[in-house]
């Protein structure tokens, strides 16, 4: 008696497991067919020239929001856009491959120029320093400026 009950229960469990597996397989197949039909109904890049992707051109023409210097960049077409806040006025973004923009045009303070003009004052060459310069001890490294040689 007990053996018969056990056999019946085992049969029922096996049937349930088998039917669940079959249902899962059928569901997966239906989903796959649905995806395939949607894919076929949408235009491909080759079929529609306007959708042909031009990654280089997109990179070369970053979409900028109006507003001029210091404005944040926006680009929906460049998923790899690198945007880093550098200083309050500097935003970094990918412009073309391997190049980033750190600052917009025009976002500058008045320029300092040193221009030799006509009506010059001819200077004598600098005399050698009579007292040789001597090293001094500093408490911490002195920040240096890199700029055009002067």
């Amino acid at each position: 008696m007990a053996n018969s009950d056990r056999a019946r229960k085992l049969l029922i469990r096996t049937a349930l497991a088998t039917s669940a597996t079959i249902a899962t397989l059928i569901g997966a197949q239906n989903l796959a067919m649905l995806d395939a039909s949607q894919f076929q109904s949408s235009p491909t890049p080759e079929a529609d020239g306007s959708l042909t992707s031009q990654p280089d051109a997109v990179f070369a023409l970053p979409m900028l929001e109006a507003g001029g210097a210091g404005t944040a960049f926006a680009s929906a077409t460049v998923p790899t856009t690198l945007v880093v806040q550098a200083t309050p006025d500097i935003t970094i973004m990918q412009a073309v491959p391997n190049i980033v923009i750190l600052r917009h045009a025009g976002n500058t303070a008045p320029r300092i120029t040193t221009t030799s003009t006509s009506n010059p004052v001819v200077q004598q060459p600098a005399a050698p320093q009579i007292v040789p310069p001597a090293p001094v001890v500093v408490q911490q490294p002195v920040t240096q400026k890199s700029k055009s040689s002067r």
Binding site: A69, L82, V84, Q85, A86, T87, I90, I92, Q94, A95, P97, N98, I99, V100, I101, L102, R103, H104, A105, G106, N107, T108
Partner: peptide, 18 residues
């Protein structure tokens, strides 16, 4: 006034730029 940099410049010095 525009300032541009190579991408590796930004990657190398990003900490200081930021």
């Amino acid at each position: 006034g525009k300032v541009l940099a190579t991408a590796n410049f930004v990657l190398s010095h990003n900490e200081r730029l930021s």
